[in-house]
Amino acid sequence: MKAVIDNLRREAVRLLANDEVKMVIGYGEGTDASRTTPYFASTPEQSAAFTWGPLCANNLAKHLLDYRYEDTRLAVVVKGCDSRGINRLLQDLQFPRERLVVLGVPCGGQLDRNLIAPEIPPGARLQGIEDTGKVYVLVTDKGRLSFPKDRFLMPKCYLCETNMPVVADFMAGDPVPSPAREGSDRTAEVNEIEALDVAARSSFWDNEFSRCLRCNACRNVCPACSCKECVFEQAVPGWQQSGIIGSKANSLPENMVFHLVRMFHVIGRCVDCGECERVCPVDIPLRLLYRKTLKDAHILYGAGTPGMSTEVQSPLSEFSPEDPEEFM
């Protein structure tokens, strides 16, 4: 872990000192022992604050969008899952490849903050993290805290598809074993919901959507949500003029429109990074919704997880005569 951090810092210093990039986006120390925070270094000196480890859940690819209309070159640190988001932004021409340096980090799985936070003694300061293979050890001023990987990782990590970045200009470390569980079925949870009858499925999602706060965190954290102006924020979308659909009112129909429009919008673009589900303050299982679209896109078009490469087009952005067309 320490070697990776050192490599990362060295590369950031080099990039900034040689003026190859104006800014490096990575992870910095968080305000408690259970997390990190996005960190932006513009000088070689600031690069000393970069960190890396199993507390780096944020997908930093999203932050690139803030600089898409500038002409500066940036570097960004990505895990395997995040890197799919990079490919998608490149494919959608949201960020030019020549302005981007991708710094890849090998990821052995991210700790689930909800699971580890209760285990951390009050006020503990993080001093370092060790990876023993099966266990992450958080070294704190109040003792060493062991978190076995088979129990404390984020659920998405057990279904990990690419724990090494699919795109990187620089790798900060050697490959590490994937945290994916052997033989795990990525569609299992989707299948469970699909197996319910229509009424049960409907009531499942009605219940989830009615709990939504409409804080927009899922949208704002999503690397697939790259619209400069979101349809829900357009001053006068035609379809909004005759009703409140698309307003800030919190009601089941409103919330459902928000989530389903977003769902349709990210089909073929959602890279399954799971950020939406991580940030949701009321724990709506959003990833389940998007994984359903991944599954359908796979069945209908043979599409894999978006962003695995920049070569494969998103299924809904190209036409092939072999496309299913039972709706015609």
Binding site: T37, K62, N216, A217, N220, V221, V279
Partner: peptide, 9 residues
């Protein structure tokens, strides 16, 4: 502001 994603949480 660089960190902020502009959500309403």
């Amino acid at each position: 502001a660089r960190k902020c994603i502009g959500c309403g949480i």
